[in-house]
Design a protein around this nucleic acid. Structure first.
Lengths: 339, 339
DNA sequence: CTGAAAGCGCTAACAA
DNA sequence: TTGTTAGCGCTTTCAG
């Protein structure tokens, strides 16, 4: 069952069928109707592969994520798919699972499927990935990595905005020893979050004590471990800001087993506002990086770069703000209670 | 850059390049080496669309899920992708979001991309979906829906196995009033879980009190609401089994705001063992439906049906066992303490 | 073992 | 407005 079969039955040429299906205005309404009737009747669907082959456009966008099981990503994938479908595009999602090998494979799969553009949302910059794709002038959009590159668009995250609000919130709650658990500092995004924290502290005249900044790895286990170090300090912090929500969850798990009550004894703030954070107990106060908005920007960047005939030589920059989300994991500094 | 370009540079025919790339044994080793060298040098990747078109095989499997943001699915998608890639297949994931319209679109996208088989993991049976796909003899694999259908393979879930263990665990902890919060009873899977609960209770001579079986909807909100009903009973249950983990999370959230301490005052058990359940506090005791194993079965069924030349007329059945996972949300019935 | 050539299903010039 | 036709990039007979 192909276009010729439809053409034969509708007693027209396959070109007319093609035009009808693609809603080319030059087809006589009554002819079109006849064609559509046959199409419906036989339940005909044009082959995307044939279309792609002849048109040179696959109508596929690639999306490379770290791992879809990371709670940060399902929402991303969901919105990306929704947006793509709305534009009659399909998406090819691959996960690198932090493995250089899988990264190569990802790029390869993208290329084999002739994707028209790729969004890289791995939160770690993968130069090797770039090479193959950039070489072929595939439009690329990165989130939050490195300096502007030629032909590559970038979504920058304004970490400071949300982190500043969080820090000021804690200061208002009269916390004086505020700790920060970072992500793996090899990650640009983790580094940027830490820097935003330090800067926010300085802004309001609170020196960020280096002893209170300890490195985690964006997993709950890393959070627990980092928190343990903090607990062994002579002067424990009364509030902790974490580089992501999973880290905060680790902290809260440790609190649970150590009988430290959040937020009474300790205020905890996360980052990302993953879906999960509203379900843990107590619901986690966090900093949101609006995923829907992020994807909207990513898609827009991709779309923009794909539409233009002349390649986007310098690449475009977009900025996404972060913002504070107040829930129940923060409270007044117990040492400074309403005494 | 196409196969002919490679052929020209390697001074062979495009047929030879094709054979080389596809590792056809008839190519002279030295010729093959020459071809490979050019291929690597130019970074050539064959076009999947051209391949699909000429071979009649897309090397794509479809996966239809309810919504990828449901914590049950990311793991599924992940393993499915991994398995597919291992077999040199790509996957096309679509979400129905419980919307009949999206379901139609899903089927359409699958068909347009000429997927070789589709796994339907929506946990609700969508007859409408079947029509278009079955009509075209696309191999289909369902999880846990309805009676065996011609040409459709099925993965059945043995709910009883895990639920029985959970019930017996609670009985051993001397709980006597055990409640069950169901999922939406329009769902076959929810119904099956409830039935397994009733049967497990009867097996050990504990009548399942109808008053203690209340309907939820598989969301935390539904769980909270159902739990509230249970709380208003003259004789409250000391243990609750939930139709899924999200429901259990709702129950625990309500406990948190009502100062009911889990597991001291109330034992809670979930179902699914989603990733999240180990991170909530206390870590949730639950019943696992091994997702990795599930996907393995699904893929195997698909693979099996795709390989066979003659269509699988009657469809095949597979069974997946469920099993109990002990964590910290259950304890001895407080009314029967070691007094 | 290798090459020539047909053709997969469709779109887009070009002709009528 | 509609039809004819070439050809997208590849695989696969069929000859040689």
């Amino acid at each position: 069952m192909n276009i010729r079969e439809i053409a034969k039955r509708a007693r027209v040429s396959s070109a007319t069928v093609s035009r009808t299906i693609n809603r080319h205005p030059s087809v006589q309404p009554q002819l079109a109707k006849r064609v559509w009737r046959i199409v419906e009747e036989l339940g005909y669907f044009p082959s995307t592969q044939a279309r792609a082959l002849v048109s040179g456009r696959s109508r596929i966008f690639g999306l490379i994520v770290s791992e879809i099981t990371n709670p940060f990503f399902p929402e991303i994938v969901h919105v990306f798919e929704e947006t793509a479908v709305k534009h009659n595009y399909e998406i090819l999602v691959t996960s690198t699972v932090h493995d250089p090998e899988r990264m190569k494979t990802s790029a390869r799969r993208m290329l084999e499927h002739r994707v028209e553009g790729v969004a890289v949302m791995t939160f770690g910059m993968e130069e090797s990935l770039l090479d193959d794709l950039k070489l072929r002038n595939v439009p690329l959009v990165f989130v939050d990595v490195g300096p502007p590159r030629a032909r590559v668009s970038n979504i920058r995250i304004d970490y400071l905005h949300g982190i500043r609000q969080a820090v000021q919130h804690l200061a208002a709650l009269r916390h004086e020893k505020i700790a920060f658990i970072t992500g793996p500092l090899t990650l640009k995004s983790a580094l940027a979050r830490k820097d935003a924290f330090v800067r926010s502290m300085n802004e309001i005249g609170m020196a960020a004590d280096p002893e209170l900044i300890v490195e985690g790895d964006h997993t709950p286990e890393g959070g627990e471990e980092a928190f343990s170090k903090l607990l062994s300090l002579r002067l424990r912090p009364s509030a902790i800001l974490c580089s992501n929500d999973m880290t905060a969850i680790g902290v809260m798990r440790k609190c649970y087993s150590d009988k430290i009550v959040v937020p009474r004894d300790l205020s905890v703030i996360g980052f990302d506002n993953i879906h999960l954070s509203q379900y843990i107990l107590p619901p986690l106060t966090t900093i949101e990086m609006a995923q829907t908005e992020l994807v909207r920007l990513v898609f827009q960047a991709l779309w923009h770069d794909v539409q233009r005939e002349i390649p986007n030589l310098k690449g475009t920059e977009y900025v996404l703000k972060t913002s504070f989300v107040l829930r129940d994991s923060t409270a007044m500094n117990p040492g400074k209670g309403r005494s």
